[in-house]
Nucleic acid binder design. Structure first.
Length: 314
DNA sequence: GTTCCATTAACGCTACGTTT
DNA sequence: AAACGTAGCGTTAATGGAAC
């Protein structure tokens, strides 16, 4: 059985990252492609038998305007962690003819119902939310190129993401990436990057690895995931936000903090919530807000240690 | 207590600046 | 001149602070 991740561009012009794990969580493929044919060609060898393909792109979009209910529900939990989902609706040109991810899933004959028992399935995931939950971050890693963010700051954040991905090997649902040459090449590219576009080229495949891991995690630890929304109006699958995890500070203070990241490369600043902030009530709230949560306890204990490790990276 | 403003995230597109 | 790289804008909803 294979677990694929696709960091899918909404349109065909921008690059798409593809990563595949085997049943043991070993990375067997990682790379970037562009058009639909190339995405399908990359996935085809791994989707003939039992498989899960996790798309970081809208899979079901029916609303003519505004946000999907899944985005509203997810943003309610994750916005404070700066992991808000981008709104998708059929009024946008990218979705006028149906979501690209649904076309690809259809071409591969994958079942898109998040609660299906089918052997070959596609799900929608969201890497930013996944990294917050898996790594117990108090806010997302700022590795996405945006105006005002410097190359060195972006690089250090992307390397923190790669560190976190590699550290997942030590968890009860291990991910093993360091044995793959293309992963090591990606790391070298990031370390050597001098321009934002150098980082952007590496970012899509790395995000795809996170997507693939969410697919694996959802299969191995179904009690540890939350499904926001539903199959009819659109859904997003993510590792459950730990109940005791809190954002680091109010929005106003975070703005100042962002400046520090952009200009000072504050790698390793205390952005992981203390582990003693456990046991709160958000679980109940989420249940009222359109999220199907299977486990109120969050990721396993060893991920706490991972959180510490990320929080103390220097 | 209510309203308004600024800010945040996501991604794609376009315009402009820089490099070859 | 062409190619490439980057900044800025638009979209959408939520939120905190300030002003009324």
């Amino acid at each position: 059985m294979y677990f694929a991740g696709v960091d899918l561009a909404w349109g065909p012009r921008n690059p798409t990252g593809v990563a595949v794990l085997d049943g043991d969580g070993v990375l067997v493929h990682v790379g970037a492609v562009r058009d639909d044919a190339a995405v399908l060609a990359a996935l085809q060898p791994f989707t003939t038998g039992s498989c899960r393909v996790a798309f970081d792109a809208p899979l079901v979009v029916t609303n003519p305007s505004g946000q999907r209910p899944a985005e509203t529900a997810l943003n309610r939990d994750f916005r404070a962690f700066e992991a808000g989902a981008h709104p998708a609706n059929t009024g946008k040109p990218e979705f006028a003819d149906g979501p690209r991810a649904a076309r690809l899933a259809g071409a591969l004959d994958l079942n898109m119902d998040p609660f299906s028992a089918a052997a070959r399935r596609a799900i929608e995931v969201y890497p930013h939310a996944a990294t917050v939950a898996l790594f117990r971050l108090s806010r997302t890693l700022k590795y996405k190129a945006k105006p005002g963010r410097g190359v060195e700051g972006l690089k250090s954040e992307l390397l923190r993401l790669m560190d976190g991905i590699e550290a997942l090997e030590q968890t009860p649902t291990p991910l093993r990436v360091t044995g793959h040459g293309d992963w090591l090449t990606l790391r070298r590219q990031v370390q050597a990057a001098g321009r934002k576009c150098d980082l952007r080229r590496a970012e899509d495949p790395i995000d795809a690895v996170v997507c693939a891991y969410v697919a694996l995690y959802a299969e191995r630890r179904p009690s540890g995931i939350t499904v926001y929304g539903d199959f009819a109006t659109g859904y997003i699958v993510t590792p459950t936000l730990p109940a005791a995890l809190h954002p680091d500070r109010p929005l106003v203070d975070r703005r100042k903090h962002l400046d520090e990241i952009d200009h000072g490369c504050q790698r390793g600043a205390a952005r992981v919530a203390p582990l003693d902030q456990r046991g709160d009530h958000r679980t109940v709230d989420r249940a009222d807000q359109g999220a199907h949560q299977f486990d109120a306890h969050g990721p396993a204990g060893s991920l706490d240690r991972l959180g510490n490790r990320l929080g103390t990276l220097a």
